[in-house]
Amino acid sequence: MTALRPFLATYGTALAGLAVVVVFALLKPVFLTPANFAIILKETAFLGILSLGFTLALVTAELDLSIAEVASLSAVVTGALVHAGFGATVAVAAGLSTGLVCGAANGLVVTRLRVPSLIATLGMAAIAKGLGFMITQGVAFVGRWPVSFTGLARGSIFGLSNLAWWLAGTAAACWVLLDWTRIGAHLRATGEAEEAARLAGVATGRMKRAGLTMCGLGAGLTGVLLAASLSSAAPNMAGDHFLYAIAAVLLGMTMFEPGRPNVPGTLVAAFSLKALGNGLVLVGAAYYVQDIVLGLVIVASVALSAGALGRAAFVEKLNFKRPS
């Protein structure tokens, strides 16, 4: 039992996720087929990439509440250019830059103007939303767009959908960055003990800017892939991902490295949320039951690891507990 305990503390949520998978598999064998897993993986891409970006910001103990709106804006910018006949390269570059610029702006406002990220990014969310409506005038860009663009998200390589590859690439990059580079070590130190890190010579301001900028870039990539996958761009198209992204990162903080935002945790959590949604559709649960179950799962999972989350750096910051 004593040997089991640290194992459960680290992998408990992941095991609960596994239990859900087993239950669905018993009820609906199609759930466990490779084809269905490929679908879940593909659908995890949007949520996963958005959440991974959020993870990088949260590692530095800064929140980014603008991810969904920035993703939507990036989709709109990309869609507008594709719709106007620009090449895929130009459109994608513009979409990614949109995310990058929004993220960098968040970072500058937080570190230079010393506006708490909670407020700065809320402002950015409103601005990005407004810009999205300005560009589209409320009407979505829809069309049968060239395959050179939609191919980014549609189709597959080695039997795995392109979206899944995007997710894998992003996750690998985030993992290497966060766990295996000096920048990653400094990002974490900035989040866990900002003042101590600064005194140890870590450029904490730059790290916060880097975290928020990469978060924006993640939102930008999500937006571009959304537009390519749906061949359309609307100013609110990523909106429903926001709460799920936050849920994924918080759930992720209950596994692997309890209390710390971490890449494998975020990834497993995003996949679990999507698998849960997928399973509920397959077993034929009514739409309102799905909402209720998802809500219960999120609350329950976070509640059972409240101990670890309560000690998380960003929570302490929100409580305005500062080292004296």
Binding site: M1, L4, R5, L8, A9, G12, T13, L15, A16, A19, V20, V23, F24, L27, K28, G279, L280, V283, G284, A285, V289, V293, L296, V297, A300, S301, A303, L304, G307
Partner: peptide, 26 residues
Amino acid sequence: MNEITRRDLVGGALALSTVGLAGTAA
């Protein structure tokens, strides 16, 4: 110890609720 039981409870509850849902659907 406390932690383990809570985790187990939630896992169990999840499994139960899914079983219940599927019963109605199948």
